[in-house]
Amino acid sequence: MAEWLDAILVLVILTNLWLLGSSRLRACIQAAALQGILLGLIPLLATWPAITARLAGVAAASIVVKAIVLPAMLRRAAREANVVYEVQPLVGFTTSLLLGIVLWGLATHIAGRLPVAMLHVAPLLIPVAIFTILCGFLVIASRNTAVMQVIGYLALENGIYIFGWAFAIEDPLLVEMGVLLDVFVAVFVMGIMIYRLSREFDTIETDEFTSLKE
């Protein structure tokens, strides 16, 4: 199963680059959804064949929420807010992609220095986790549309989750479900906010919200 896990992880890297390079919101939401599916598969493959019912349940719940429910909510928010493209990001798309490659280098560097030799972790897991977190930050910081910032937040959350699974941290079910619920409600509330923002400002480009500048 190790090759399958590696394949999945490479796909996660690609979804991140897709997120960085695309200006169409729908494409980015798609990438986030795909990442959600991959994210659900990782724990199954990482612990193959010793899958417990609990793990399968958590993975299934995570796929349903992150790959189906949240993308649907984001799509709806984008449609209602009537935004199709991220028009003027703070950092251009080509530059973002190049930065992505730099971030990948950074992620492998950090991962190489973490004292984890004694744990038998698949070699790609930790760099991919760190890379996803960094990409999430880059998207939040460099994109102007509110929808893209939410997508960045999801990527950040996904990266943290891959990290958790890299170490097969046996989270109690309560915590696992609580975290998932929090993320769900967060994106739900953000979706409502996006809708209202679009009505108030005729735009959801957050740098237009200058009314609170110091």
Binding site: Q149, I160, A186, M190, M193
Partner: peptide, 26 residues
Amino acid sequence: PRSLVATWKYLVICSVGIALALLGYF
């Protein structure tokens, strides 16, 4: 509208910040 912007900032900044605390927990 101003309170809307404030709420947005609050949600995004705090959620991202707290995501880091989740990493800390891991």
